[in-house]
């Protein structure tokens, strides 16, 4: 019996969904519900998930809540440092439509305009149960091959970059690429 390309993909997906490592980047206030999930009370290691300090070894990026424009720069850089396949979970209302900060001048409103998002969790903040639910949903999607945000990022790279630059400059016109030291 020989396996073709698709079958191998299936096998790979099946394996990778059971060992999702997460970037440890507390971007917003939603990060407050991450410690209970990461540690013994809710224990996400039951699902093979683990917090990773460096983005290069991580598969999942939890954008925990609102993003200030200053953070968006760092988030995009962290996201681009992650290796494919990579998944993004939009955590809390703020990533969907601005949430509490819908009229704040310094937070981006809709995360999917800047980086592709695979799963959203509603709530402010979501309970640990809901977070675990989202992990299970993501695993399910990976298994079925539906979590293809990272492919979208490659395909529509120009559009994502354009939107990011618009946000960086706080204007609707694009600017030159951000300077090297700004991104630190």
């Amino acid at each position: 019996m020989t396996l073709n390309h698709d079958d191998w993909g299936k096998v790979a997906r099946m394996m990778s969904k059971r060992s999702l490592w997460m970037v440890h980047f507390c971007t917003g206030c939603g990060a407050m519900e991450m410690p209970p999930v990461m540690t013994s009370r809710y224990d996400m290691e039951r699902f093979g998930m683990h917090a990773m300090a460096t983005p290069r070894q991580a598969d999942v990026f939890l954008v925990t809540g609102y993003l200030a424009v200053k953070t968006l720069k760092r988030v995009v850089q962290v996201y681009e440092q992650m290796r494919d396949p990579k998944y993004v979970i939009g955590f809390g209302s703020c990533t969907i439509n601005g949430g509490m900060y819908w009229d704040s001048y310094n937070t981006i409103k809709d995360l999917s305009k800047y980086i592709p998002v695979d799963v959203y969790i509603a709530g402010c903040m979501p309970r640990p149960e809901a977070i675990i639910d989202s992990f299970l949903k993501l695993m399910d999607m990976i298994d079925k091959g539906e979590a293809i945000g990272w492919k979208k990022y490659h395909k529509y790279y120009d559009q994502y970059k354009r939107n990011q630059r618009m946000a960086y400059s706080y204007r609707l016109d694009e600017v030159e690429d951000i300077k090297e030291d700004d991104a630190k």
């Binding site: 601005g98 009229d103 704040s104 809709d110 305009k113 529509y156 559009q159 994502y160 706080y170 609707l172």
Partner: peptide, 20 residues
Amino acid sequence: DFDTEKFVNEIYYKIPEVKE
């Protein structure tokens, strides 16, 4: 005199969606 709601409506909500 800086109107944050107007600013938001003019910038963030005007940034286009990524078209597929």
